[in-house]
Every structure is written in C-alpha cells, then in structure tokens.
Amino acid sequence: MTNAINNTGVGAVRETLRFDEIRLAEWMREHVDGFSGPLTIDQFQGGQSNPTYRLTTPTGSYVMRRKPPGDILKGAHAVDREYRVIAALHSADFPVPRVYGLCTDPSVIGTEFYVMDMVHGRVIWDPRFAEVPSSERSRYFDEMNATIARLHSVDYSAIGLTDYGRSGNYFERQIARWSRQYQEDVLAGRDRNMDKLVEWLPENIPPGDETSIVHGDFRCDNMIFHPTEPRVLAVLDWELSTLGHPLADFAYHAMMYRLPPTIMSGLAGEDLGALGIPSEAEYVQAYCRRTGRDAIPGYEFYIAFNMFRFAAILHGIKGRQLRGNASSAKASDLASKFEPLTQLAWEQAEIAMRR
C-alpha cells in the first residue's frame, strides 16, 4: 500500500519549523481519542504554505497542520478555517479526514494547529493517470466528477457554514480582487493580454448567481484515492475554500483539459481516446447531469476567469522573485509561465465572444 506520505515526501522537521514535541504529545493525550505515545514526528517536504507534519505512534498515525511561525499577513494561513470546513464536511459524510481538535493556544507549539487522521491511499499527481491502466482511467475521472458535484450539492447552511464566506457576486468580487493585486504590483510589470482581461471580464459575467462550498484548488493531486479502486477516500488542502460560485470551482477543475504541460500539468494536446480519458464535453455533461443542469452557458467565460486568476497568482510570484522574497529556482520557473498563460486566457475570452 502506498500513501500520501510516500507521494509527497517526508523527512526530518526543518530547523525553523521545530517546536516542543513534549507539549504536543500532552495536548494529544488530552484531545485525541485513543492516543498513546511515544510520538514520532516528521515533516511533509512539499510546498504547503501551512507546514504539515506526520505524527506516528505505535497504534496510529495522524497529520498536523499549523500556521507558520513569524509575522504573517492578517487572515492568511487560517488553519482554523480549514479545520472548520473539514469538520463540517465530515459530519455530512463527505470524503475528508476525521479531525480531532483545533488548538488556538500558541503556548503549546508556538502557533495555532489542528490534528486529523492520516488517510492511507494513493495520490495521483499526473492528470493523465499514467500509473492507472487505461481501461480504468474513465472510472477515476468519473469519481472525481462525482466528488466535486457532491461537494457543490452539500447544504452548507445545514452543516453550520452559512457564514463561511460571502454569498452572491462571487465573480465581481474575485475579478476586482485579482485585478487590483495585478495592477498594484508595479515591479512585476504590465501585460497586454492581462490588461484586456481586466477590462473584459467584469463586463461579461454570465447571468445567474449561485452559492455553494467551493474548494478553490480541486485537482487530482489534492485527493487521496483508494489504493486499488477508483474511489476518493479524502479531499485535501482546503486552504482556499469558501462560499462561492460552483461553476467557478468546477471550471478551475476542468481547466486541466485546456492547459498544456508546458504551463501546468494538463491534458491539452493529448489523445484522450488513446489514454482512455473522457473528453472535456463528456466530463462537463457528467457534471451537469449530477447537478441537475442541461448545460453550462458561459463555460468559456468561467475557463477564461480561472486562467486570469491563475495568471494573477503567477504575476505575484514574479513580483516576489524580483524583490528577492521568493525561492529563486521554483519562482523563476513559475514566473516564466505568466505571459504564455495570459495569452491562453485571452484566447479563451475570444472563444467566449464568438459563442
């Protein structure tokens, strides 16, 4: 059996992210049912903005997510929000890990944190699902489709998340936010296609408004699949979750069909039939069927919006790199994708204009 630890890589806790392990063990004895030491602690080596740790005992294994130490932006790294949405969704029988408790007392390990179950399974990093036999890939895609449709069908009021975000006008607020961030970062420069998107997007928002829980980063590598079956055991990484428009969330997920491997792990240019992967049209139809829609009017807009949002994030990385506030190798690679992505985003907008 493989698990998420093996896929993401785990190692010794980084020196700057160490904490009082004895205090943590004491907290777990009080708050985690069935906990019994000794406790062994390792750190996931991926690029999580909230440091993530594997906690191992002779009888079980857990995951801890914490705020990073030091000065951080107000509202950033909100592990309390992650804990809240995971706990609420678990109560609705949605596939998320069981959470044991949230600690808001910084005297325990120095920052807020929460502890949840370690879910054993496998993480699929490549949307081509190369490690899965081609005859089974369509079932994995159908399971992802069913999972995001199920998320958007959860009654957020019934599980206590009415105030988890603002309802209504999601696109107006998001476009304004990312436009402002792009325009204010003078050092990172301006881009012709991005400027056109800043003008075009707010004037072309499709009619109709909906609100649901949105994940914000729904990708195959943010799920843990059963070790041998096309079944999602847990959806991870809820840092960007909020209340928002479900079609924005779905289009972000479906954007894998439009992105080439040169920008992000995507399926553009692939022979989907040969790979055993459903077409984009089939995937959209399956989501519509599950959510009671006949179609998604404005789908091209939603794709363009998500590419714009992604481009704004890359623009911010470019700015941090130029200021010397980002790790050079990875930041440089991401920043180099900004202009190709803005060109692709504007091409999506042009397609939307022709529809």
Rank of each mutant, 00 (worst) to 15 (best):
N50A: 07
N50M: 09
T52E: 07
T52W: 08
Y53L: 05
L55V: 01
T56Q: 15
T57K: 08
T57D: 06
T59V: 15
T59K: 15
G60F: 10
S61G: 14
Y62G: 00
Y62L: 03
Y62R: 00
V63H: 04
M64I: 00
P68G: 01
P68W: 06
G70V: 12
G70P: 10
I72Y: 10
I72N: 10
L73M: 15
K74S: 15
G75Q: 00
G75F: 04
A76C: 10
A78P: 06
A78Q: 06
A78Y: 07
V79Y: 01
V79P: 01
D80K: 08
R81A: 04
E82H: 01
V85L: 04
V85D: 05
V85Q: 03
I86Y: 03
I86K: 05
I86M: 08
A88I: 02
H90C: 11
H90E: 14
S91L: 11
A92E: 08
D93A: 15
D93T: 11
F94C: 05
V96F: 02
P97H: 06
R98K: 15
R98M: 13
V99A: 05
G101A: 04
T104F: 08
D105Q: 05
P106R: 01
I109V: 03
G110A: 03
E112L: 10
F113K: 01
Y114H: 05
M116Y: 09
M116H: 05
D117L: 14
M118T: 12
M118E: 14
G121M: 06
R122H: 09
R122Y: 07
V123F: 13
V123S: 12
W125C: 12
W125K: 15
P127Q: 09
R128Y: 11
F129R: 12
V132L: 14
P133R: 08
P133W: 08
S135L: 14
R137A: 00
S138C: 13
S138Y: 13
R139T: 08
Y140R: 05
Y140D: 00
Y140V: 02
F141Q: 13
D142I: 03
D142H: 10
M144N: 08
M144Q: 09
N145M: 14
N145D: 13
A146G: 11
T147L: 10
A149D: 04
R150P: 07
R150D: 13
L151M: 07
S153T: 15
V154M: 07
Y156F: 13
S157G: 14
S157L: 14
A158P: 07
G160S: 00
L161F: 04
D163K: 06
D163I: 06
D163R: 05
D163V: 04
Y164D: 05
G165E: 00
R166E: 14
G168Q: 12
G168A: 05
N169E: 11
F171S: 11
E172Q: 03
E172S: 03
R173P: 07
Q174H: 04
I175Y: 03
A176E: 00
A176V: 01
A176R: 01
W178Q: 02
W178P: 04
Q181C: 06
Y182H: 01
E184P: 09
D185R: 09
D185C: 11
V186F: 12
V186L: 14
L187G: 13
